[in-house]
Simulated scan of single mutants.
Amino acid sequence: MNQYKKLAMAAAAVLVLGAAGCAGAAGQTAQTQTGTGDNQITVTGKSCVNVVPDMAKIVFAVNTEGVSAEDTQKENTEKMNQVIETLKSMNIDEKCIRTSDYTMYPQYDYGYGNSQQIIGYQVGATLTISDQKIEDVGTILTKGVKAGINSVSEISYSSSKYDEIYQEALKQAVDASNVKAEALAKASGKTLGSIKMMTEGYEDESSRYYQTNSMISGMTKDQESMVSIQPGEQAVRAEVNVTYELK
């Protein structure tokens, strides 16, 4: 199997994300905790809402090797400039393009007993491309590889509607707490009264982004087929703690 086919298979394996959504959930979940006091009951309601991500962040690099540090750095800069120009030609805003890392290491030959001999240098420049539409990611990767990209280390997915979906999840969490509180009140021979206190539970901000570390390296500009992106679903979770009066 040639290098291109191996890379294509690697890309398909790491870029097709499995759903990280609400397993078995359709709206509310019934995971609650309860506590009792003087004519009061406290319920913790939880909810999970799935959303399909529509935005992506890509982290990729241009790595070059050479005998001379100066020549290797020059070659890397030229290739990186080609990549940046390609990105701009795709109408990607400059504020979305950031150089996030730059490295240069000597390469050694350890075949001289206890001595080390420098035989070359490796230079790597990393770009982070943020706030891109999901449907454009495949094109960005394909054209970027042709321009000089030879390593992709990360793709992160997010939803531009996260805040809206989180508000929906909060409402469902309140509904879930109402259902549980009604059942517990009835089981204790009482009726459910008004809400005495309500607090929002912990919001996991990391759920704003769904990330995969793809680690695709050795890509070549001979790659012609478009990389396919399948982001799957993103789980947005909410939690509320509600204290009710018992009558």
Rank of each mutant, 00 (worst) to 15 (best):
S160A: 15
L192M: 00
N2C: 12
E245V: 10
I41Y: 02
N50W: 01
G45H: 04
I155Q: 02
L246C: 14
G37A: 05
L87N: 05
E65H: 14
D204Y: 03
M226F: 14
L17G: 04
A10L: 13
I140D: 02
A183I: 08
S159V: 01
E135F: 00
S159P: 00
S153H: 01
T64L: 02
Q73N: 15
S207V: 02
A56N: 04
V14H: 07
A69P: 13
S217C: 06
K180E: 15
T220N: 11
S207W: 04
S156M: 00
A238H: 04
Q28A: 08
G21P: 05
E164D: 15
A11M: 12
V227Q: 12
K221L: 14
K146H: 01
Y209L: 10
S159A: 07
S217A: 09
Q234L: 14
A8P: 03
V16Y: 12
V227R: 07
Y110C: 07
M104D: 08
I129L: 15
D71V: 12
T99C: 09
T86C: 11
E233A: 11
M226N: 15
Y112M: 14
D163M: 03
S151A: 00
S177P: 07
A12N: 02
E94V: 07
R98I: 14
D136C: 00
L192E: 03
N114A: 13
V67F: 13
Y202E: 14
A235S: 15
Q82S: 15
M1C: 12
G18V: 04
E224W: 00
K95H: 06
L87H: 07
T128G: 12
C48A: 03
A12Y: 00
L170E: 04
S159I: 02
Q33V: 05
T29L: 01
A56M: 03
A183D: 11
Q167M: 09
Y202K: 07
I41S: 04
I165A: 10
A8C: 09
A8S: 13
V59I: 08
Y157I: 08
D131F: 03
A20R: 05
Y112E: 15
S206N: 08
M197S: 08
M226H: 15
E94K: 12
A187V: 10
E75C: 00
K95I: 03
D93V: 02
K146Q: 10
Y209A: 09
I229W: 06
M198C: 13
D71G: 07
A235C: 11
A69G: 11
R98G: 13
M197I: 00
K88Q: 15
S159R: 09
M80L: 13
Y4L: 13
G113L: 04
T220D: 12
